[in-house]
Design a protein around this nucleic acid. Structure first.
Lengths: 187, 187
DNA sequence: CGCCCGGGTGTACGAGCGTACACATCCCGC
DNA sequence: GCGGGATGTGTACGCTCGTACACCCGGGCG
């Protein structure tokens, strides 16, 4: 019994996880439009039959994949904001999130867009984005009042999106100024 | 020679336009993922062969379709802002755009999302969104300084998106307050 | 009036897709 | 140690897709 590479395939508990991760990779590379059972299977290194065995269909697979993505993004967001000790640090953390390289990679931009596109059409994915937004707002509400939190959340969304899509670079000072303004109640 | 309905097909100059409009309808109904030459042809009431005759491929068709959509949206935006006579009216116009039913229909949400998804991956579509954003910013700069215009543009984006995706309704007052804050320079 | 030419169309082909299902393989209880 | 049930896989089918290409037909010129 030589220890070939493709051994111990049976009862591989990571199999399902690997498929989900591979699914996100395929979505980044080819878009939801170009994502198929075959491509994901190839990317994950599993046989085609495993797809239908582990998932009822592409919809279920996509739902789990984007759940994982949204959860990871929320975790990052909460961690960054949780580390802030006062409003000033919270604002700095928000600016860092907008201008930094955490949520602003090409991969994150693509996945977020694809998720919103799905959410725009299918309620199941809309629930996902709603939970994501709710967690963001809750994290912001640890430092700001609910109304400000909601505005700030929207501002973060818009600035991140525009910064990511724009070809010419934005400077961080504009983002900082915007955060400063939105968190300052009108007289 | 009875004047049947399917007459005068030859040399129909509106044919191309009808295909583009039908393409947008199909995208709304099935997403870019589910848009095919066959579905668009059926929706437009033209033979399948017309697709490859008028367009080099799906990419060209989608590019023209989304160009039309983005141009129409920009026109709306400019018209609304152009009618404002001072900064106060401009702010009111912005709030109306965010909370109104012009850019916030399901159709617009879906098309915008799909466009951003394409832009996130393909430079050709990114140019499209960049021109759209540039026109919006230019329209805003008629009433606000460039930095404020950029912030406001991002805020509009975020608020519109969050309002459209959120299941529970937002009140217009929050949008108005956010616009008020973002247009008020920090001391 | 008739020919011809080019714009427009119907069809057929090969590729890629999701899914069903017969079958191989392994593990556990006896 | 061996039979049988559960777990996982390979394959084949039916479908939709984009595209190429042979053909149709109406209008313009000789």
């Amino acid at each position: 019994m030589p220890d070939d590479a493709p051994r111990a395939r049976r009862h591989d508990p990571q199999r399902r996880d690997r498929i989900i991760d591979a699914c996100l990779d395929v979505v980044v590379a080819h878009g939801v439009a170009g994502t198929s059972h075959r491509k994901v299977a190839a990317a994950a290194g599993v046989p085609l039959g495993s797809m239908t065995y582990h998932f009822a269909g592409m919809d279920e697979l996509l739902r789990e994949a984007f759940t994982r993505f949204a959860t990871a993004a929320s975790d990052q967001f909460e961690r960054r904001l949780g580390a802030a000790r006062d409003a000033a640090e919270a604002k700095a953390a928000v600016v860092a999130l907008i201008t930094g390289d955490v949520l602003t990679t090409r991969r994150d931009l693509v996945l977020t867009s694809e998720l919103y596109t799905l959410a725009a059409r299918e309620p199941a994915f809309r629930d996902l984005t709603n939970r994501w937004m709710a967690r963001s707002r809750a994290a912001l509400e640890r430092h700001f009042d609910p109304v400000t939190a909601r505005m700030l959340d929207a501002l973060i969304e818009g600035l991140t999106l525009h910064r990511a899509l724009d070809t010419e670079p934005h400077d961080a000072a504009t983002a900082a100024e915007a955060v400063e303004r939105i968190t300052r109640p009108a007289g």
